[in-house]
Design a protein around this nucleic acid. Sequence first.
RNA 1: GCCGAAGUGGCGGAAUUGGUAGACGCGCUGGACUCAAAAUCCAGUUCUAGCAAUAGAGUGGGGGUUCGAUUCCCCCCUUCGGUACCA
Length: 946
Amino acid sequence: MEFQPRDIENKWKKIWKTSRLYEVSHQSSKPKFYVLDMFPYPSGAGLHVGHPLGYIASDIYSRYKRLKGFNVLHPMGFDAFGLPAEQYAIQTGIHPAKSTHQNIEQYRKQLDNIGFSFDWSREVRTCDPSYYKWTQWIFLQLYHHYYDLESAKAMSISHLVSIFEKKGSTGVSAVHSHDEIFTSGQWLKMTTIEKDEVLMNYRLAYRKTGYVNWCEALGTVLANDEVKDGVSERGGFPVEKKAMKQWSLRITAYAERLLRDLDNLDWSEALKTMQRNWIGKSEGAQLFFDLYDHEAKIEVFTTRPDTIFGATYMVLAPEHDLVDIITTSEQKDFVEQYRNYVSARSEVDRMAEVKEVTGVFTGAYAIHPFTQEKIPVWIGEYVLKDYGTGAIMAVPSDDERDMAFAQKFGLPIIDVIDKTNYPGATLHDKLGIVINSDFLNGMEVPDAIQMMLVRVEEMGIGTRKVNYKLRDANYSRQRYWGEPFPIYYDSDGVSHALKESELPLELPDLDDFKPAAGGKSPLARLHSWVDLGNGNTRETDTMPGFAGSSWYFLRYMDAQNENEFASQDSIHYWKDVDLYIGGTEHAVGHLMYSRFWHKFLYDKGLVPTTEPFKKLVNQGMIQGVIEYLYMEKQKTGGNNTFVCFSEASKNPERYAKIPVFIQFVKNYGTQGSHLDKKGIESFVEWMPDYKSAQFKSGLGTYSIVDMPEHFIIYTGSEVGKMSKRYHNVVNPDDIVGRYGADCFRMYEMFLGPIDQAKPWDTKGIDGVAKFLRKFWSLYVENGNWRIDASPPDEASLRILHATIKKVTEDIEKLSFNTAVSAFMVCVNELKKSETRSKEILEPLLVLMAPFAPFITEELYSQSGHTHSVHSATYPSWDEEYLKKDSIEYPVCINGKKRDTITVSADIDKNDLEKIVIELDGIKKWMNGKNPKKIIVVPGRMVNIVV
RNA sequence: GCCGAAGUGGCGGAAUUGGUAGACGCGCUGGACUCAAAAUCCAGUUCUAGCAAUAGAGUGGGGGUUCGAUUCCCCCCUUCGGUACCA
């Protein structure tokens, strides 16, 4: 009867599995509760201790809700399509399906070790054809729909076609990429190719030629959020702009709803702000400027129509369509040169030289709509093709970038806003008095904006317009390991959807995963698959990583369904995710796409809620301690010399930081972290390159051969990512093997609040291990079962009820670290009592079951129960037991504690005041003065004001 | 630059949202048990002065509101995340 975590764990894991303890059904009269984790991408490196943090939190919450009488859906699966598996395949020739499968097995084993209550019968894998059948199906729904602005929802393309047949393009108000006006007669006369092109302009999943983020090294197109600092997020390879025909999703159609519906979500403000910024709504005006000597007009977007009298020139994006038309022959060479220069520059260059102003004059002039003056039209890099209209009116006096541009190229500057009344205001603030602006003179900026909007609409030179930063999502990848598009093209290049009965379109087998020629997907090389006869060919691109993850939470509701993505029955029962836990790294990508898909499915009547995730919590990263040795950077040859941290910090640039395997370091993570002789020996054995290196400390300089026994060298500590390259990865299997799953779970929670980043420190786990042994010894002492039917004592009742209250409230707040502390206090208190009453100790088992499922289950069954502790009834607390007979009050004078007094809990306030001023200690401090006021905070403190 | 989060002992972190700052754990110090070690138990542990009782200081820095501020307000500093020529 000794506490042997491993035996207990193995025993109960088996029993839970055979009894299907954690499987749930939607046929239930209980209220539902859906707890979801962001499913992992199964990488080859396996799990480290940071990964399960969120899973442990969600598992505790799920188990708690279950005990509280809810029918809890708590599933897990794998986001299994993706780049790393394919990269690995290119390097090793191992098929992604195989390595992915192995990685999943490894993950599954590691997860099972920790004792999660996942319902594995609902597991999903995004790379499984029975799953991606429905990813393809949803894609086709998007393809077959457009966004109708009047009813503010998605509607079917066939409906759009019927409108075109009757009224032409003017009969519909819908979201589309570019304006194109035609009558019903014109529509009817169009060829199928032309019709296909027109419909692509409306479809929610559509194909267009666009400038995409092309990554040569990865051989694929990346989404904006897969590019970080101008290089690919994965691998850090350079990214350039390239024109390609690509599938896109019209997420912009949902921009307003995605923005508006954020307000009702129980997400952190920080995260909502991130999404709001990403959507980037700005209200302003769309203005048309006539061109001198040309029919065409320049269309601009501005949030500051009030500054139009300060517009002294215009700037087009270098890629703007008008550039070719308006450039004069004298300027042609300069413009051509400049455009070449721009397109040759990588994203990284552009980022690095943001402050450098570049541009060139087109030779053309626009006409200012109010002053009728000729204003020059330039092109410049700082105007972006795909934001707004790709053209601006430049107001140098009120915009920093326009100012820099005007100064560099000697363009005129007219002050139009007087900010003297607003001393602290920056150029960005819409504040000031309008000057030099004809009829706007003397007006405050906000009024002037409104007046201009009215005037502009009257004159017919522009309209109010709302603009969003959010752009349509690129949906094509030139990759093998992803969902194939259920699309083929006929000999005219017109797109056709597969029929539902033809789904899933399975990913064909391949043994060479390198990209095909011309930036094409590896699938393009498989002619037998691509060529469908009669000139029909398949789309060879595959879908991006976010495709499968945008709806997986719906599949869990009915994971085995072969006829629907999930039955309406199950969707109406489970509805939406009540609690979603995952990392911040998906703040804008995954969470935005999922919300978009969900809203689309809502429009289709396929889901009952407008938002998929009611409450969302971001778990913080668990960081690792990184220990560095400092090596002198060599000028020429010679031996390496390592010095102490203190020496290196004097001249940091002279030394290279070499991360050291954490286990060689004594006192790691502290100021005294160092390698002793043994540590140094291990180090050079581990990295033989440094076998003959010198080590220099206050004791002198030695190599490993002549080093004295007491020699040590100090290392530098940092907190950072847990990663292979820093040699600081801690595997949960090791921790679980040594301390047990219960201990691992509780320690991860004990580390700190789940939403905060915190460093892992294995040393601290002993405290939790000690706690669990103490906890066990409450029930079993010296091999004897101690708990009996004796009546509980007052003190034990009090601490039990206080703990139930505290833990329950903490779980509701997801404050698991303080809940674990409360258990520790509770056990320490109970140990003091001689009695081991069933009435105290059984409720405690249930209370702690969500945190430590194994030890509590074992003790619960030993106590004679035949059902699982995980299907017991959650204990409630009774305030009666929490009342105190006497209260100790601190007595303060002017807020400073000067004495304490213990009085009965129900003492009258006046009596308390009287007693307090008569206290000897207080009298001394009062020094004969009379109190002005006595403040009594019941149960807290007494303050005497003098 | 902009947006967001956070700064509390040697360390991870508590503090009922304005009421005894440092719960709980690690580490450290001393003690018990032991031939010894491990394990366990007991006591101490914010800093300064003092043998002590005790006194003073103290939640990144500076100011303010209040009987009373880790908590509210203003200014500044630092760290970490996100984002970036967004018109």
